[in-house]
Design a protein around this nucleic acid. Structure first.
Length: 420
RNA sequence: CCGAGAAGGGUGCGAU
């Protein structure tokens, strides 16, 4: 059975589903029938490739063949469905499992809560928390941290505070992830100083910050322009033997660049290389964006070619940063070349890319073409946001076409976008 | 021999 299961896992990793299925079929007919691990391996593979119909089929098969799904099966299905933005279906699946007498465990519930939180369905997520408690499944620190992070990111700080007290009252102590989520929340609202207090508080309580905690704080301080404190934390993490990773370095490079501390930025880039850490697509995009903003599109393009050489595929953000750079130096040809290259490489322009094109057309007095782009983006499923509208409105106002501007303003509100 | 949580990059307007 071990050999069979290993083989199946290997086949699934190579996406050879048919072969994996036929091995499982052979097992079923041999004197070595598939066990729960065999089935769960198959389900995790299928979910990763969004083949949910096949996965459902296996779950049904398991019941028929006397090897009913367990809570691992359940949580993997929920995870897969949630990653495909099918939270409702995930919940339905969980309910079905419950009705068949299977008690989902804390991980299955946490998966569902995580999926709902990531989809900003916080009220539903809270309901699941209550539901699991009613069913006698105690949430753990992971469950609470998921919900807390969701509430923080949804700016529901007060609710989060209450939940934090509740979790502690249930004897569940915050861990490094719980603290880091809170620290990130404070940093994101520009309050890195309070985040730092939380950081000191967690140490006092014996909770050791890790590389994510430090990276969060370094980024938080850089985002409010406190280079000094960011450097202090960077040094502190080295002192305590916590090694910065590609995220820490990239965050530092971005922050230093934006603060105009070019010396520090190149130092960080050098340290990254010396530490033998591989820059990733975000590191490259950060550098490319900075160079573009300095009007050094030539250098930016050089990094763009270099990243491809190094085997890092540029993504929509990389292309968009470059496109923005080239249009700001009025290199319209390059903008079009890049757009084509982007689409050819399988990168779909998103609302930010479109907004740049809209702005480019507006600023060259081609409002009509800008409107056409907005039409086009909508048909491709990218709907204009408050920035698209502001770009058009600004340009119309500057041309004294205030009636049109007002119409757009009203249209924007009708579409549910509050003016910022 | 199988499953869960936290950190980094791109777009508009803005005083003289």
């Amino acid at each position: 059975i071990y050999s069979y299961n290993n083989l199946i896992q290997l086949l699934l990793r190579c996406r050879c589903y048919d072969q994996a299925f036929s091995v499982a079929e052979k097992m079923a007919q041999s004197n070595c029938p598939p066990n729960i691990f065999t089935y769960n391996f198959m389900i995790v593979g299928l979910c990763k490739d969004r083949c949910f119909e096949k996965a459902y089929h296996i779950v049904a098969d398991m019941e028929k063949r006397g090897c009913p799904p367990n809570s691992v099966t359940c949580s993997m299905m929920i995870q897969g469905l949630c990653r495909d933005n099918r939270e409702e279906e995930a919940y339905e699946f969980l309910r079905q499992m419950v009705s068949k007498g299977l008690n989902p465990d804390v991980i299955a519930y946490s998966e569902l809560i995580n999926g709902l939180c990531k989809a900003s369905k916080l009220c539903q997520a809270r309901k699941i928390l209550e539901e699991m408690i009613v069913r006698g499944c105690a949430p753990n620190v992971v469950t609470y941290s998921i919900l807390l992070d969701g509430l923080y990111k949804g700016n529901r700080i007060h609710e989060a505070d209450e939940l934090l007290h509740f979790m502690v009252s249930q004897g569940c102590m915050p861990d490094v992830v719980t603290y880091t989520a809170l620290i990130d929340c404070l940093c994101k609202v520009g309050n890195a100083d309070r985040a730092f207090n939380v950081f000191e508080g967690m140490i006092e309580k014996g909770c050791i910050p890790n590389v994510v905690t430090y990276s969060t704080l370094v980024d938080g301080f850089l985002k409010i322009g406190n280079t000094k404190q960011a450097c202090f934390l960077f040094q502190k993490m080295l002192d305590v033997g916590c090694m910065p990773n590609v995220v820490t370095y990239t965050s530092a490079i971005d922050g230093f660049c934006k603060a105009g501390e070019i010396g520090l930025a190149s130092q960080a880039l050098e340290s990254l290389n010396q530490a033998g850490i591989c820059p990733d697509v975000i590191t490259y995009s950060t550098l490319i964006d900075f160079l573009c903003k300095m009007n050094r599109t030539d250098k930016a393009y050089h990094f763009f070619l270099q990243m491809i050489e190094q085997g890092h595929a540029p993504d929509v953000v990389t292309y968009t940063a470059l496109i923005d750079g080239f249009r700001k130096v009025d290199d319209v040809d390059k903008v079009h070349t890049l757009l084509q290259a982007m689409v050819r490489s399988g990168c779909t322009p998103d609302v930010v890319t479109y907004n740049i094109l809209v702005d480019m057309l507006c600023k060259t007095n081609r409002i009509q073409q800008a409107y056409e782009i907005v039409q086009d983006m909508s048909t491709r499923g990218h709907f204009p946001d408050v920035i698209t509208y502001s770009t058009l409105i600004d340009s119309l106002c500057k041309m004294y076409r205030t009636d049109e501007a007002r119409d757009l303003f009203l249209q924007m509100m009708e579409q549910g976008h509050d003016p910022d």
